[in-house]
């Protein structure tokens, strides 16, 4: 065997193993590219889920549900004819939504941040609590965000009331929803009693 033949055999072997690795690398791309995409989008998707009320959990009328470490019960949905000095548009109706909440885990500042109570109707519209001062100050009631910072102890019962202004045509189908920072993307939807 001549020296030249030995060299050329060695080159052929190197070429083969190189080709093998090249092929392996290409196959690896099939896994690595999707994996990169998944890793890169993990944090934004996590933020999106933590920021939005996406998936409803239905609550039967009159029942109590544990949410954000405490027991929530929808007490009432009321309206009033007396809005004091505030003049509402002709087709607008004030609606008060009352909850009673028995505190379980008292770390409300961690569990309840970003508390969001809305009214949603069957057409997919939703209303946030109004900024109009139709809700008179009271020691008995607080809104959700001030309740978060109330320092309530475990076992205490809080009364939470939010005031809304909605158009008349929404009244037949509006249902309260409740979202809390620690429970997102899930939120509660309080079903209304069937008449």
């Amino acid at each position: 065997m001549s020296a030249g033949a030995a060299v050329s055999t060695g080159a052929a072997e190197i070429g083969q193993s190189e080709r093998r690795w090249r092929r392996r690398s290409l196959w690896a791309l099939l896994i690595l590219l999707p994996a990169t995409l998944a890793l890169g989008s993990y944090t934004p998707v996590k933020w999106l889920f933590a920021a939005k009320d996406l998936f409803p959990r239905d609550v039967e009328p009159g029942s109590t549900v544990r949410f954000g470490g405490s027991d929530w019960k929808l007490e009432a949905m009321l309206t009033t004819k007396d809005t004091g000095s505030v003049k509402l548009p002709e087709n607008a109706v004030p609606v008060f939504v009352d909850f009673s909440v028995t505190i379980g885990d008292p770390d409300l500042q961690k569990l309840w941040t970003g508390c969001r109570i809305t009214l949603a109707d069957a057409a997919g519209r939703s209303w946030l609590p109004t900024s109009l001062p139709i809700l008179r100050y009271s020691d008995d009631w607080s809104d959700c965000n001030s309740a978060t910072f109330s320092g309530a102890a475990a076992g205490a019962t809080l009364k939470i009331r939010e005031a809304f202004v909605v158009p008349k045509d929404a009244i037949p189908t509006i249902e309260p929803t409740l979202g809390l920072g620690s429970e997102r993307p899930y939120y509660l939807r309080f079903l209304r009693a069937k008449d």
Binding site: N91, R125, W127, V165, P167, A170
Partner: peptide, 9 residues
């Protein structure tokens, strides 16, 4: 302006 659905302002 804070506006609500169904309540033009």
């Amino acid at each position: 302006f804070t506006v609500e659905p169904g309540l033009p302002a």
